[in-house]
Write a protein that binds this DNA or RNA. Structure first.
Lengths: 130, 130
DNA sequence: TTTTATTTACGAATGATTTCGTAGCAAATA
DNA sequence: TATTTGCTACGAAATCATTCGTAAATAAAA
C-alpha cells in the first residue's frame, strides 16, 4: 500500500476497489456478490477484472486453500486524491473552488457536516496566515 | 440548451466542451487550434469528434458559408453538476461531504476563496434552520 | 484557367475496457 | 467411486472511444 498511485483505475476497477476498501480481504465470490447488488455481472467477469487488477498491481492476492483472497493495494484516500485532481482539471478547469461551491450548493450536506467544514476552513485560514 | 444532459460526455468531448464554453461559437479550425495548445491532435480528429458530438446533440452547428460553426448544446454548470454527481457516487460512495473535505484539504484554495465558501455555508445554514 | 489549400464526410484501424465462454482442476456430494 | 459443484486461467468477442487517411467539393491563389 505504499506506492503513490499514478495509474487511474477504470470505472469497473473503481467499483471493485470500493468493495475491497470496505471488506478488506475478499474472495472473487464475495466481490461478485457485492457487485451483483448493484448490477448484473457474471462471475468470470469479476474474476477477470480482479486478475487484470492484480497484473497492474492495483490489488494483491494470497492463496487461501483453494481460493484467492484479494486486497486493495492502493489506498482509498490516495486514490480519491488522484481522481479528484484529474476531475477538477477536466471538469472545473482546475478550480477546486468551483467544485466545492457546486458540491456545497447542490449536493446533500447536513448541518453537522457544514460545521465540520467550517472547522476545516478555520484550520486552513490559520495556516495560510502564517 | 434546454435539455438536462443525461449522457455523459467522454473525456475528449469534455475537452472540446470546455473550449466551446469559452469561445461560444467556433469553427473546427478554432477548436483544433485551442486543442493543439494542450496536445498533439490532427485536424480531422477534432472534426470527427465534433461530428460525433453533433450526432449526439451535445453540440449544435450552423453553416456559415463554407464552414460550420459549432456551439455547445449542453450548459457548463448543468454538465458539471451531472459529472459531479456521478463522480461523488463513484469515488466517494455518494458522500459530497468527503469530497469537499478532501478538496479543501489538498487542493489549492486561497484565503479569499475560503471566505466565499464561508458565505455559502452561512447561507446554507440559514436555509437548513428554517 | 490551373493549381493549391481548406473544408466536410466517412470508413476503417487502433487501442482500451468490459464481458463471457470454455477448459482444466480440485473439492464436495451422491 | 462417479458425479456435480465451484474455483482459476485464459482467449477471444463485443463494445466503446480515439485517431487518422482518403475522397469530394469549393474557395483562394497563382
Amino acid at each position: 500500500m505504499g506506492n503513490i498511485p499514478s495509474i487511474k483505475p477504470t470505472e469497473s476497477e473503481l467499483e471493485i476497489l470500493q468493495i475491497l476498501w470496505q471488506l478488506g480481504k475478499a474472495t472473487v465470490r464475495q466481490v461478485n456478490n457485492e457487485l451483483s447488488k448493484m448490477k448484473e455481472v457474471g462471475y468470470t467477469t469479476t474474476l477477470k477484472l480482479l486478475q487484470i487488477m492484480h497484473e497492474k498491481h492495483i490489488v494483491s492476492r494470497t492463496e487461501e486453500g483453494r481460493y484467492h483472497l484479494y486486497q486493495a493495494e492502493i489506498g482509498e484516500e490516495q486514490t480519491q486524491q488522484l481522481l479528484l485532481g484529474k476531475f477538477v482539471d477536466a471538469t472545473f478547469r482546475g478550480s477546486a473552488m468551483k467544485l466545492v461551491m457546486q458540491a456545497l450548493g447542490n449536493q446533500e450536506v447536513s448541518l453537522d457536516e457544514l460545521d465540520e467544514i467550517k472547522k476545516l476552513i478555520a484550520e486552513k485560514e490559520k495556516n495560510l496566515n502564517l
